[in-house]
Amino acid sequence: MKPIKNTDVLVPILLAEKIDKISGSIRHQLEIEFKVYELNVEQGLILEELNYHREHTTTQKELGRKLRLARYSASRNIDNLESLGYVKRFKDPDSARRVKVSLTRSGDKLASILSSLIRNVYKDIFSNLDGKEQTNLFKIMTKL
């Protein structure tokens, strides 16, 4: 690797390109893993998010915000997951305007499988870094 000139412009551009490349690699690998279950990345991540926060129900709006999905995209992906029997929607008893989403039994089983796949993808992506390097990278990224 060529030495990087430490300029105010070049280094941030190169860092942004590396972050974008890592993000793209993760997305590509998740696409491959989720395709086996006939899901797109967004659907797989919705199931993962519901699995992670299983102790409380989540609104459709919260899911969209957390996963950075446009409102229509969150709704469409949840529609698809609902038609596949993986999630169910219901009105929030505290607010008639809010729609909550939770996993069904089959969604719960699939979400557990996907959680394991996602962890493995993340482990593979960062496998070239030892534990200390991963910790340091996390500390640096947290500052951004």
Rank of each mutant, 00 (worst) to 15 (best):
residue 18 K to Y: 10
residue 20 D to C: 06
residue 23 S to Q: 05
residue 23 S to H: 04
residue 25 S to C: 01
residue 25 S to P: 00
residue 26 I to K: 03
residue 26 I to T: 08
residue 26 I to E: 01
residue 26 I to Y: 00
residue 27 R to I: 06
residue 28 H to Y: 13
residue 29 Q to W: 01
residue 29 Q to M: 04
residue 31 E to A: 09
residue 31 E to G: 06
residue 31 E to M: 06
residue 32 I to L: 06
residue 32 I to N: 14
residue 32 I to W: 01
residue 32 I to R: 12
residue 33 E to S: 06
residue 33 E to Q: 11
residue 34 F to L: 07
residue 34 F to Q: 04
residue 34 F to W: 01
residue 34 F to A: 07
residue 35 K to R: 10
residue 35 K to C: 08
residue 35 K to Q: 15
residue 36 V to C: 02
residue 37 Y to A: 12
residue 41 V to R: 00
residue 41 V to F: 05
residue 42 E to A: 14
residue 42 E to C: 04
residue 42 E to R: 03
residue 44 G to W: 07
residue 48 E to R: 15
residue 48 E to N: 12
residue 48 E to K: 10
residue 48 E to M: 11
residue 48 E to T: 08
residue 49 E to G: 01
residue 49 E to V: 03
residue 50 L to M: 09
residue 51 N to V: 03
residue 52 Y to W: 06
residue 52 Y to G: 02
residue 52 Y to F: 10
residue 52 Y to S: 13
residue 53 H to D: 02
residue 54 R to C: 08
residue 54 R to W: 13
residue 55 E to N: 13
residue 55 E to W: 09
residue 56 H to N: 06
residue 56 H to Q: 10
residue 56 H to R: 14
residue 58 T to I: 10
residue 59 T to L: 09
residue 60 Q to V: 12
residue 60 Q to M: 13
residue 60 Q to N: 08
residue 61 K to F: 10
residue 61 K to M: 06
residue 62 E to A: 09
residue 62 E to M: 12
residue 62 E to L: 08
residue 62 E to F: 08
residue 63 L to G: 02
residue 64 G to H: 06
residue 65 R to D: 15
residue 65 R to C: 00
residue 66 K to I: 11
residue 67 L to S: 02
residue 67 L to Y: 10
residue 68 R to I: 08
residue 68 R to T: 11
residue 69 L to A: 06
residue 70 A to T: 07
residue 71 R to W: 04
residue 71 R to H: 13
residue 72 Y to W: 15
residue 74 A to Q: 03
residue 74 A to S: 13
residue 74 A to N: 02
residue 76 R to N: 13
residue 76 R to G: 03
residue 77 N to C: 07
residue 78 I to D: 06
residue 78 I to E: 07
residue 78 I to Q: 03
residue 79 D to Q: 05
residue 79 D to A: 14
residue 80 N to W: 09
residue 80 N to K: 14
residue 81 L to S: 09
residue 81 L to Q: 05
residue 82 E to S: 15
residue 83 S to W: 14
